[in-house]
Design a binder for these strands. Structure first.
Lengths: 325, 325
DNA sequence: ATAATTTATGAAACGCATTTCAGAGCAAGG
DNA sequence: CCTTGCTCTGAAATGCGTTTCATAAATTAT
């Protein structure tokens, strides 16, 4: 209710002095300082942060664009972002876009409007050129490999990651290898497909498109994958799957259907979630949490102006051998 | 870069006129309107929303307090909140508190600071009295039953819900019934315990505290629950579990350990997630999504001033019979 | 033709806190 | 004693868009 002017009036000082007290500036006589503090207390004053935002042109808010909040992949990433945001004193504004370009755009406009200081894009549907247009208004950090574009990005080398996964399965004696994708990782799924094809060529085994299972996001999708697979005459003997959740679903349904893992079906999952550990799922740890945290910390650096040019960070991956492959 | 003053200068009109054009007010001659629009376009003008926030004292932002983002329970709730926020034109500011009171407090302070128009508390650790102190600054909507306190809430009748679950299992012939809790639903877990005890008394069966499994949030916890349970000499024949995720974990591990469901272990899960459907898990649909959506819509109503007194909404639940109990 | 509206436009106030600038008072250094 | 340098304080400018109020011009009603 009360504003700084009223505090000044009642405490018998100028607004400048009040401001100084509130911001711990030096050069305020002890008695005035006390008078101000007391009035602030008495009137239960709280500063209107919007005035500050207007004045500074900054808000200490980062916008996060993601298609769906309730999904382990983005959940973990978000967790990383949130943790880092907390550390560096930012608030997060999330926009669940469902891949609607207008929603993504809206968040970018918020940056132009100075409502947020930067944007982290976990997954998008707007074209990169379009995003670039917003470069002047604040840092945009993408969670994907974007090549030589003037935006920052944190990414995983999906190609290599996949390559290594396939090689591992091959070395274990598998030559019919399938994989699941979630589709959401749009740009990266093509990189995976490349890796899949290239490796198959290198190893001299034919590619089988019906072993690529789309729309696999969660446990239930793993369950459904197994059911789909069992209807196929020709089945893969090993799978690389999108997430620990999907792997758990597969494991569950495989058990019900009498498929032994890894004997009848080998599995590598693509993130290192607690489930994977508990269930002993062989995993390619792709550090999504780190990815989120890095994205946030890059955004922070760019906003604070420590660095001005776009930054790029590759997140390392690591195969964790357990017992499903 | 450019502000409304500059637009006015260049277009040769007053700032008032520019504002009118921008807000589609009537009474602006067509030629001036065009001049303004053209200048806006040419200078790539975008209005500074912070000025508006300051002026209006409102931001169209709702703060969401939740302990962890990456958890199906809160994920679903958040999804409901987000969906409704989208509809009614709010942005969401999320704070992942990890149950740290300071973090919860920080968000409340943001409301006092006029940075957010209201707060939705999915789960909290601050005491209710403490929250009440923030009542004057905007609506606080809690996702739990709070009794006759002057705050809004959306809640589930955990007592009845649990009661019904136990009765169902009893009718199926079970007299050794256990349950899992996530602990996070702090206030509600005591209601459940009451229901558990009361029902046991009513049915004349003894309560067994070692059949209450704590810290069950996700698949892995379901897996671990089964392992814990198998170490017990005296085991429950039926379980009511916190979520579809946990149920899936139990199902998975039960299968591995040779426990048949529902013959050796009956299961009722406590939310109706896709997994539950795919896996045929008997479920008490507790409408968490609806809970989130309702919380948001109540917040909206209170902010818009449609209603001024606190609102309360009980979310209905419904038992969905499938094949695990 | 005169009164009553409606249309059109701009100046100024408002919301609020920070910061720059200028000036006054006082102590230390030469 | 005078200068230099702090310490302390407040007026005014700043950031920016909306809205109220006043005024003028153009219509419509009587």
């Amino acid at each position: 209710m009360a504003n700084i002017k009223e505090i000044a009036r009642i405490a018998g000082v100028s607004v400048t002095t009040v401001s100084r007290v509130l911001n711990n500036h030096p050069y305020v006589k002890e008695d005035k300082r006390r008078a101000v503090l007391e009035t602030v207390e008495r009137l239960n004053y709280s500063r209107n942060i919007n005035a500050l935002h207007l004045l500074k042109g900054r808000t200490q808010i980062i916008g996060v664009i993601l298609p769906m909040i309730n999904h382990s992949y983005f959940g973990v990433m978000m967790e990383g972002i949130a943790q880092e945001a907390l550390k560096s004193g930012y608030q997060l504004m999330v926009s669940q876009t469902s891949y609607q370009p207008e929603e993504e755009q809206r968040m970018l406009e918020m940056m132009r409007n100075k409502q947020i200081d930067g944007v982290i894009i976990c997954s998008r549907s707007l074209p990169l050129e379009h995003l670039e247009a917003y470069n002047p208004y604040g840092p945009i950090v993408l969670c994907e490999e974007i090549g030589p574009r003037p935006m920052s990005s944190v990414f995983l080398n999906h190609y290599q990651c996949f390559q290594e996964g396939i090689r591992y399965l091959w070395n274990k004696g598998h030559s019919s290898i399938g994989y699941s994708i979630s589709r959401m990782e749009g740009p990266s799924s093509s990189r995976r497909y490349e890796a899949y094809c290239d490796m198959h060529e290198e190893l001299g085994i034919p590619v089988n498109p019906s072993w690529i299972y789309d729309h696999c996001l969660d446990i239930e999708d793993g369950v459904l994958l197994v059911r789909r697979m069992l209807e196929q005459a020709d089945r893969p003997s090993a799978l690389i799957v999108t997430s620990g959740q999907v792997a758990a679903g597969i494991l569950l349904e495989a058990g019900r259907q009498g498929l032994r893992v890894p004997e009848d079906l080998a599995l590598i999952s693509f993130d290192n979630m607690p489930i994977s550990e508990v269930l002993g799922i062989t995993t390619m740890d792709n550090g999504i949490y780190t990815m989120g945290a890095s994205a946030m910390s890059i955004a922070d650096e760019l906003i604070r102006g420590t660095t001005s040019s776009p930054m790029t960070k590759e997140i390392p991956f690591q195969l964790i051998e357990r017992s499903t492959a």
